[in-house]
Design a protein around this nucleic acid. Structure first.
Lengths: 223, 223
DNA sequence: GTCTATATGGGGATAGAC
DNA sequence: GTCTATCCCCATATAGAC
């Protein structure tokens, strides 16, 4: 057998298997034994290629997130270029922010869906491995988008903007992590495969939310 | 020692310890050994009171969620009563929906925060125990709020409404589960202890989002 | 009701042959 | 690069004394 080709096969099989099982059972619940078994190999091979379980988990995050994030930044560039000296349209920014993530998560049958589940959970995950790995990949995008939203919404105080971005991230994360949940609860009404529809619904929802007037609602008398 | 009093102490200590450790390390990462040790007792006692680890987890969810959910339904009743024959104000519905959850999560120093983290993660959690337990407690509230939002937003097609509720749940879940994340990323700017402020920010954000015009944004040329 | 001690199984990681 | 066999630790759950 050509060893140089088999290397990639084994490594990729391990990544695929880890992705699927971490999505299905969580990091702690995905044992190396189950992963290697699903990949058609054994414990020692995984250790040979990745060293530890943590390194394998990091590789699972890194594999697809780089490209997806690059696409987000490309759309952000495009929106800023089209806007010229003025601020880009809010809808374009939101679409650049959520579009590639949701799209990648829903439109590929297995890969994307498993990966999206993992990413959607990663930020609020108890195990630090996935969270830190994801935040590391996100650092530049956070900076870039935060600046772009600041210019698009110049009247918002910075705390208000950051909270709103936080809420937006929540809507996005829950959507990509909770595909299964939607199908369980609303499967008779909602179609989780209509990727473009979902993205445009999110764009409408989040654009209106981000642009909400600041102090329209007075504080209630009592909580 | 009065055995009848000690019973409650041991049981409560176990619930407190389980809550804290599940919040911190996830269900799979919180071992019964660690829980019983933190509670100042031992494995056999936990098994005596709860039978299995899963039962203990269910009890952790059930303990606070009943009251919090009752408060949400009480606020919903109040909003509907005040509105009389007409539909309640959207802001009141959103405040009833997210207020008690966020409030309970942030305003108690330990208990609430741990519990909120668990609930915020539970719906997209890989382990079915927590998800099913939470969804069980939620069944009536889902029905009631869905009907209320339908009346408050009569022009929205049902799919659009359900997706928007899904996005809203995401913003709420991410907020209560991600307190630690906010402090890590934006701790210099945002104050996670300003409970009333957070709730009112969410109410503004989500009310505008839920009421967004339906087809204002035409589909983009290319994704 | 609470404890110590233990049964039984699964976990990650590795040694060493091929 | 890949395998089998194994080390060692920790998990849940239980038995049985008090």
């Amino acid at each position: 057998m050509p060893a140089t080709a088999v290397v990639q096969d084994t490594k990729l099989s391990l990544l695929d298997a880890a992705e699927a099982l971490i999505a299905e059972h969580g990091l702690a619940g995905a044992s190396m034994r189950a992963i290697t078994s699903r990949a058609g190999t054994n414990l020692a091979a995984a250790n040979y290629h990745f060293g530890t379980k943590e390194e394998l988990a990091r590789a699972v995050i890194a594999r697809h997130f780089g490209p997806v994030n690059a696409e987000r930044l490309r759309l952000l560039d495009e929106a800023e270029r089209e806007a010229g000296v003025g601020a880009p349209r809010l809808e374009s920014l939101v679409r650049a922010f959520v579009g590639p993530v949701v799209r990648f998560g829903q439109e590929l049958p297995d890969r994307g869906r498993h990966f999206a589940q993992i990413c959607g959970r990663a930020m609020t995950q108890p195990e630090p491995v996935l969270r830190e790995s994801l935040l590391g990949e996100l650092a530049e995008a956070i900076r870039r988008f935060r600046a772009a939203f600041t210019r698009a919404l110049p009247d918002l105080p910075i705390e208000e903007l950051l909270w709103r971005i936080h809420f937006m991230v929540g809507a996005m994360a829950h959507t990509i992590a909770g595909t299964q949940l939607i199908e369980e609860v609303h499967g008779d009404v909602l179609d989780t495969r209509d990727v473009d529809g979902i993205v445009e619904r999110m764009v409408r929802f989040l654009s209106a939310a981000l642009a909400a007037p600041i102090s329209e609602t007075p504080a209630p008398e009592k909580g």
